[in-house]
Computed example of a mutant assay.
Amino acid sequence: MPYITLRDGAQFYYKDWNPPESTGTGTVLFSHGWPLSADAWEKQMFFLAAHGYRVIAHDRRGHGRSDQTWDKNDVDNWADDLSELIEKLDLKELVLVGHSTGGAEVARYCTRHTTARVAKIVFISSVVPQVVQSSVSPDGVPVAVFDGFREAMLKDRAQFFLDVPRGPFFGFNRPGAKASEGLVESWFTVGMQGGLKAVYETSRSWEVDYSEDLKALEIPALVIQGDDDQIVPIKTGALAAIKLLKKGTLKVYPGGAHGIMDTQPEDINQDLLGFLKA
């Protein structure tokens, strides 16, 4: 399996699908959300690779197959890790795609490092600009909710990691929703591969204000979110983000849940492809 060694010696896993029939039309790099891994993007990676794109996704430190380091589980270090991957693979003309927490990671990479290697950026159900309730994000999630998440993880992470996908993540708790036990089990399995400390500390990134990161972006940005996202309220997510982006395009999915890459993969795939070709 492909790994790079990071500055602190940590082993950092990534998958790189560059099919022989690739048309050389570009490279798409995916950053996953909490508490998942590169595997969260397989539907999108398979689709885009079949359309001639090189597709890459990594496991954030502490998640999936990457090393479970004790420290550096914060957005600045994630941006540094991403920078090391991009530099070591010498990637150029990238399209960065971030879901949920991954949106914070790709935004911070662009402002902490550079957009010289980045052509476009995509935020899907992202925590940017600020998901926690604050004076600048009055429609955000009260910090007490995140405190409850952290308490639940420490008390019984396994049960919590079943409750989240069975409920708000995919919207399976909505009346008439047809739940997929396969999606639930997959989310649980991948989530439990992450280290407790890493997934616990990741929740602190949801309390960060990324407004300045978005304001600084000069590249085209696509913002996608469902209006029934129970994890990141759309008012504090996509609707707030689009106001800060200089070259932003907004796509709202009526009734869409947080995990729309899995619940509406055909729509996401077509919107990504259209943005890549634009």
Rank of each mutant, 00 (worst) to 15 (best):
L91W: 12
C110E: 03
S126M: 08
V132G: 04
Y109H: 10
A116W: 00
V136A: 09
Y109S: 13
V128F: 09
F123D: 09
A119I: 00
S135Y: 03
D139M: 13
V122P: 06
P138L: 05
V136M: 01
H99V: 12
S125F: 02
H99F: 07
H113E: 10
V132F: 08
E105N: 11
R112E: 09
K120L: 10
A104C: 07
V128N: 14
V131F: 08
V136C: 04
E93V: 00
K120A: 10
G103M: 08
L91Q: 11
R117S: 14
A104H: 05
A107P: 00
V95G: 01
G98W: 06
T111K: 11
K92G: 02
P138C: 06
V132W: 05
K92E: 13
K120S: 11
S126R: 06
A104L: 09
V95I: 14
S135Q: 13
G98Q: 09
H113L: 07
I124N: 02
G140H: 06
A116E: 15
V118F: 04
A116I: 01
A107Q: 04
E105K: 01
V128A: 15
V95Y: 02
P129H: 06
E93G: 11
D139R: 13
F123I: 10
C110V: 15
V128G: 10
S126N: 07
T111W: 03
A104I: 11
T115L: 11
I121V: 15
V97Q: 04
V127C: 11
K92D: 11
V97N: 04
S135N: 12
Q133F: 02
T115A: 10
S134D: 08
A119F: 00
K120Y: 06
Q133K: 15
V136S: 13
L96M: 11
H113S: 10
V128R: 12
S135R: 12
V95C: 15
Q130F: 06
V131E: 07
T111H: 09
G102E: 04
K92Y: 03
I124C: 03
H113Y: 10
S137P: 03
V106H: 01
P129K: 05
I124E: 07
P138I: 06
E105H: 04
